[in-house]
Write a protein that binds this DNA or RNA. Structure first.
Lengths: 234, 234
DNA sequence: ATGTCATTTCTTGCATACAATAGGATTGAC
DNA sequence: GTCAATCCTATTGTATGCAAGAAATGACAT
């Protein structure tokens, strides 16, 4: 969205906590203990509290009045809704990118695509995730709309853990790569309609199939200690 | 996006500042003086600083390292970019709403439309703005995707000052109302494609024509004390 | 054993205190 | 009079202190 100074402990802590939450180091609903975390980071409670404000704004934690900050995993339905929106946002990025593609952008995206292929060949899930992110992020930027790119990045980051899981599905990585090629070809051809359709499908399929993943996800992350709460969470 | 507790001074101050900024009570680039605002709100600096974190996250202010919080008006190009994204988001809301329309939603939207007509008849800009917001917000919710609705609301709020200005353009209110009727009819007919197209046009026209407004806007708000900065701001 | 209520402890929310830095004012050299 | 180096002040960033509210504990009654 915007690059913040990052020199204050507050910002460093915000980054660190965001990473930890997105990577699933906390179970859903876990309370982020101000005092304990303050000790862990060797700071007072003040920078932590300020970091909580930021995290709450991006929806990663929930601040309950006089109860503290709680890690908030989205519910299954939330994730599906988010993928729906993501599909549309990414489709829009693709559409603009197709219209505004430059030789430089094309070369960069081509390189990212090679990265995807390499990771696929090596059966490297994490590597594929990174290359995939690079591929998509370059298209965001190629849209020429920085606000759009920022929103896309934000959403992408929020959906990170769920995208990663997708890759573990049987054959998903192969499919994903095939879709990337189609998207790339349409981009190069400047075919806005095709890019839009391919991209939308590429993302939407993840939401559509997300139900298949719910159970698996619960085992892999939710089981880390989350207890069922007021409504079902993935 | 999510309903926050709002009982802490921090949250009240965040709301108040957001309102003041969106309403143009501060010139672009103005520093939000912690000490002075703390006195004004009869609190210490702590809740103010926490509110700043929130505001920075939504992009309304910029936190500069050891310099403080500064009001950040988007640049002209930023506003155009934001309207582009808004057009797509609203179009998506419309598409989903057309698919999922209920009799209740239809009645509510019809009522909001009447509100628009009333305000138009009375030549009441502010009234029209409110009715307009109601009309759009109901469609967001009718989309049945709460995440989408939240994002739409957030963006709408961020673009509030620029939308309001639109209405002052010669004949814009009449046009807007006409477009609302078309959108409503397509919604009732369940014509997804038509709603999508109408809604996209309804919003995009505001971005497209925004250049016409820039000069006017500079007079009405920017003149309040903003000095030109590193790049042109509306 | 279970439920209710009082008491205690813990934690948050805010205020205040202190330390570090940025930017301007001041001084002095040329 | 201009420029540079230095000092001073204002303001941020962080730590700590304190009061109010929530949860935990335990006594007591049913």
């Amino acid at each position: 969205m915007q690059d913040i100074p990052l020199d204050r402990r507050t910002d460093q802590i915000r980054e660190a906590l965001e990473e930890m939450i997105v990577e699933g180091h906390f179970p859903d609903g876990a309370r982020l203990d101000e005092v304990r975390l303050a000790e862990q980071f060797h700071v007072s409670r003040t920078p932590l509290r300020e970091a909580f404000q930021s995290l709450a704004a991006s929806g990663l934690v929930e601040l309950r009045l006089r109860r503290g900050a709680f890690v908030k995993f989205p519910a299954l339905e939330d994730v599906i809704e988010m993928f729906d929106v993501m599909a549309e946002i990414e489709a829009m990025c693709g559409r603009y990118a197709a219209r505004r593609m430059t030789p430089e952008a094309e070369a960069e995206i081509a390189a990212a695509l090679v990265g995807c292929e390499t990771a696929f060949a090596a059966d490297d899930f994490d590597g594929y995730y990174r290359a995939n992110h690079e591929f998509h992020a370059l298209i965001y930027r190629a849209s020429g709309n920085r606000f759009l790119a920022g929103e896309a990045e934000r959403l992408h980051r929020r959906l990170k853990p769920f995208r990663r899981l997708q890759l573990r599905l049987r054959g998903r990585m192969r499919e994903s790569l095939k879709e990337h090629r189609l998207i790339f070809d349409a981009l190069v051809a400047g075919d806005e309609a095709a890019v839009t359709a391919q991209m939308r499908a590429h993302i939407a399929v993840q939401g559509d199939r997300f139900n298949d993943l719910a159970a698996q996800y619960r085992r892999s992350i939710g089981a880390a200690g989350a207890r069922q709460r007021d409504r079902e969470r993935v």
